[in-house]
Design a binder for these strands. Structure first.
Length: 555
RNA sequence: UGCCCUAUGGUGUAAAGGUAGCACACCGGUUUUUGGUACCGAUAGUCCAGGUUCGAAUCCUGGUAGGGCAACCA
């Protein structure tokens, strides 16, 4: 690192480097602290890449900690899903796996300490009274009538709270700070509430649970987290976070906030995502149209592409909406290097090579990936009758049309150059067959025909093709910021065409052996992968993750 | 009628008082047996007004705009 060329560091890296250089910390320790009450999305991926990424970059440790202080909303199923997603992204919690609930006893002692210091009190008022006394952002609050209760009495009451002597909601424990503070969070925040709910880890051992502000910072301290990275909305919590550290005299973690990720044409709020799932707008949390990690995985995104995306978007404190095209670029960039090319026809029309002998067939070699020689070569069966893409033929074509049309000549990828002969339409004018003649000496790899074909078409041999269903996805919303409108609901912007199911697609035979989740490029069409979830016996289903970039300007 | 945060091309993000750079998107071109990839090029930016300075995206003052803050949620 010494004398390293001025690399562009984001503000968190700068803070870390300063802390390392000054000796404040010998090594850094970060954490990713999800509440197990929902599924992770691409926004969490940013946070994961940051917190785990910083630990990797500076040879530190990173913890995975489940912030499970509200048993009513949380479950083990979410814990499992989150662990799966983080692992899939390629991160290891080398600092360990923790649960805030493991600290309940310790947090209880912290509360007792606060009480003994005269810095916390039990309040018997209801939520309405407490709320009204809190004041507003522009007017100060007022003191609770229980605020000056003696420490001994508070201690006894708090012990009774724990012992279960009071019903739910009977009273709360509050930090005694300043009801006139400009920061609402400093106006005697509630730090413990009585709640008889079964906790997935502690069962019924506790009937009081600490609030976020009395759990998160303390957990950071107990794990000696040096840099506690979180999103901007916690900025106003930081004074409280620091206040508890000071009062309790615990390890001084530093909370640093960064702007959360927003992606164009989608939503990131757990609540709104849940609405889509519950109302059946999508198939579930892993619907390929959702920005959830599980959705992206099912869509065909790779962990590498998501991580490179997270590295490209930067870390800063200003609000942002990242263009979804950057995400798509990251996927194409990765898959172009790694995905095997295959041929598939989504909207098939018969292509008959009239001068190719009936009954004949041959095997034509085709490279699996022009970007990667080591990917090897496979043989494609070729014969007189093939499938071609319906929109690769047009009756009236101009000079800019490189595909098939009367008078046009094209190359069939890895095969021969063919020239239009005629076509067949049914009574409704729907194209049934295209007839072409091939040039025998134009065979791919040994072309001595001297004929130049502008366009290259993909095709599939009819006799050996396999049938499949292919699902094409478009953005879920029509608006770049569906939840950014004050006067409209995000559901108003749903894209009715976000899913297009194509049946009767023709795939090259090698795809019969495709495994779920392995991405393929369908030549000229995009990147696709087999979806085991949608498949049924004898029917393959492929999802399109993203199209290829289309540089063709029509018209 | 408060407090906190933020303002750089279309979208993101750098530049720590000294040439406003990079990526995506868009547009044009070269190569191409994927209208893909690769490569080359173009367009395009410091919220406003003052001030300090030889010199300001950067420092100061005042505006303006956007975001956040009043759950026994996290």
């Amino acid at each position: 690192m010494e004398n390293s060329p001025a690399k562009d560091l984001h503000f968190i890296e700068q803070i870390i480097e300063e802390d390392l250089k000054s000796g404040k910390h010998a090594a850094i320790h970060t954490r990713f602290p999800p509440e197990p009450n929902g599924h992770l999305h691409i926004g969490h991926a940013k946070a994961i890449c940051l917190s785990f990424g910083m630990a990797e970059e500076y040879n530190g440790l990173a913890n995975l900690r489940f912030d499970d202080t509200n048993p009513e909303k949380e479950s083990q199923a979410y814990v499992d899903a989150i662990k799966k997603d983080v692992s899939w992204l390629g991160f290891k919690w080398n600092g360990g796996e923790y649960y805030t609930s493991d600290y309940f006893e310790q947090l209880y002692s912290f509360a007792l300490k606060l009480i003994d210091m005269g810095a916390a009190y039990v309040d018997h008022q209801g939520p309405e009274d407490i709320a009204s006394q809190k004041g507003t952002p522009t007017s100060p609050g007022s003191d609770s009538p229980y605020r000056e209760r003696l420490a001994e009495e508070n201690r006894a009451l708090f012990e009774q709270m724990r012992a279960g002597d009071f019903p739910d909601g009977h009273c709360v424990l509050r930090a005694k700070i300043d009801m006139g503070h400009a920061n609402m969070h400093m106006r005697d925040p509630i730090i413990y509430r009585i709640k008889r709910a079964h906790h997935q880890r502690t069962g019924n051992r506790w009937c009081i649970y600490p609030m976020y502000d009395f759990a998160h910072g303390q957990s950071d301290a107990l794990e000696e987290i040096t840099h506690s990275l979180c999103t901007l909305e916690f900025e106003v919590h930081r004074p409280l976070y620091d206040w508890f550290i000071e009062q309790l005299g615990i390890f001084s973690s530093r909370q640093i906030e960064f702007a959360r990720l927003n992606l164009s044409y989608t939503i990131m709020s757990k609540r709104k995502l849940l609405t889509l799932v519950e109302q059946g707008v999508v198939d579930g949390w892993d619907d390929p149209r959702l920005p959830t990690i599980s959705g992206l995985r099912r869509r065909g995104y790779t962990p590498e592409s998501i991580r490179s995306f997270c590295n490209r978007i930067g870390i800063a404190k200003r609000e942002n909406i990242i263009d979804v095209s950057l995400l798509e670029f990251s996927l194409r960039d990765h898959l172009n290097q790694t995905a095997h090319r295959t041929m598939a026809v989504l909207d098939p029309v018969k292509l008959v090579i009239v001068n190719y002998p009936e009954g004949n067939s041959e095997q034509l070699p085709s490279e699996n990936n022009p970007e990667d020689e080591s990917a090897g070569v496979r043989n494609l069966p070729f014969s007189r009758t093939l499938w071609m893409e319906r929109d690769d033929f047009k009756l009236e074509a101009n000079k800019k049309w490189f595909r098939l049309a009367p008078g046009k000549t094209v190359r069939l990828k890895s095969a021969y150059i063919v020239r239009y002969v005629d076509h067949v339409m049914d009574a409704d004018g729907v194209l049934q067959e295209v007839h072409v003649e091939y040039f025998e000496n134009s065979k791919s790899g040994s072309d001595v025909s001297g004929i130049k074909a502008k366009g290259t078409l993909h095709w599939v041999n009819a006799a050996t093709a396999i049938d499949a269903e292919v699902r094409l996805y478009d953005r879920l919303f029509n608006d770049p910021a569906p939840d950014g409108h004050k006067d409209r609901e995000f559901m108003d912007f749903l894209n009715p065409h976000s899913l297009e199911v194509r049946t009767g697609c023709k795939l090259e035979a090698s795809l019969a052996e495709a495994s779920a989740g392995v991405p393929y490029q369908f030549t000229r069409l995009g990147y696709f992968s087999l979806d085991a979830g949608y498949a049924t016996e004898g029917r393959q289903v492929f999802n399109r993750a993203v199209t290829l970039r289309d540089g063709w300007k029509q018209g």
